[in-house]
């Protein structure tokens, strides 16, 4: 028995299924960057391949979502009261929120939904949640096309401030990818997470000011200061606020919490680096059983 181990060591064989060191892992992941891109695009086009309208759903789905929320929150519950440019406000919120929420939902199925791939081929597993998050980013770009049309229809014309959307989206993408990786590890171990996640996400959505103005609520008295800070520093709210600030004229810097870019960067780095390390720590366990 020890003879065999000695033989293996003498010829430089490595223990099968051991987790690669972080630099090796990063290098392997970088060498799979084409796979990540191709995987995201393939997923995106396969998504609506069964539907008759095909790729039109890429734009239809977010638009229909925005319509539903407009009727419920804008018309029936009248949260638009006191919010100028409510439709651009709402649609931006819904699209940006959908990006985060879909990335996280995709993360819960990153491993379990690709077991065939995981069990057949060897590649750094982080390629899967990253690829799925990239797919959501591509999808968001479709939605943003629709968003630009809506903005122009409601009198928001392209301005220099729109360029701020780029750093905001990059930070949000990093945040989403990180959370997606963390959730992917949790859901790979406990599949029940993907059942629970829609409820957590819905709760998160309702506190993130997607269809109402956090600023309007927190300006009223009665809320303790801590609650106000938590509501405003909630990452989803931060990224939504930044996009609204970039795209909508009547959404001014006064409505943003202080140091918002620092908060946005902090969340992105925390989730991105933390999520990646957390995912890598269990690399050897994915696809087992």
């Amino acid at each position: 028995m020890t003879d065999l181990s000695a033989l293996a060591r003498r010829h430089g064989l490595t223990v099968s299924g051991a987790r690669p060191a972080l630099p090796d892992y990063l290098r392997a992941l970088w060498s799979r960057r084409h796979f990540i891109g191709a995987f995201a695009t393939a997923r995106l086009t396969a998504q609506y391949s069964q539907a008759k309208l095909g790729q039109i759903w890429q734009i239809m789905t977010p638009l229909l979502n925005a319509t539903v929320y407009y009727f419920i929150f804008g018309v029936l519950l009248n949260t638009k009261h006191g919010v100028p440019d409510f439709i651009p406000f709402l649609v931006t919120g819904v699209f940006i929120w959908t990006f985060t929420s879909n990335s996280i939902m995709a993360g819960t199925r990153a491993i379990s939904g690709n077991l065939g791939l995981v069990r057949a081929l060897h590649f750094p597993r982080a390629a899967l949640p990253i690829g799925l998050a990239l797919q959501q980013l591509q999808q968001l770009l479709f939605s943003l096309g629709a968003l630009v049309v809506i903005l122009v229809c409601f009198g928001q014309y392209p301005a220099v401030s729109w360029l701020l959307a780029i750093p905001a989206l990059l930070l949000q993408s990093l945040f989403n990818t990180g959370v997606s990786m963390a959730v992917a590890r949790l859901a790979a171990r406990t599949p029940d997470i993907s059942q629970l996640m829609p409820f957590l996400l819905r709760t998160w959505m309702y506190v993130s000011g997607v269809m109402w103005s956090v600023d309007k609520v927190t300006n009223g008295d009665g809320l303790p200061h801590v609650v106000t800070v938590i509501l405003k520093c909630n990452p989803a709210a931060v990224y939504i606020d930044l996009m609204r600030f970039a795209l909508i004229d009547s959404y001014t810097a006064g409505q943003l919490p202080p140091h918002i870019w620092a908060v946005a960067l902090g969340w992105a780095l925390l989730a991105g680096v933390g999520g990646f390390l957390f995912f890598w720590k269990a690399e050897e366990e994915y696809g087992r059983g």
Binding site: M1, L13, T14, S16, G17, G287, R288
Partner: peptide, 16 residues
């Protein structure tokens, strides 16, 4: 186990 998909509870698998 050889492919590294199932951890051995005892012993080791070495591969090139």
């Amino acid at each position: 186990a050889i492919a590294g998909l199932l951890p051995p509870s005892r012993g080791q698998v070495f591969t090139r």
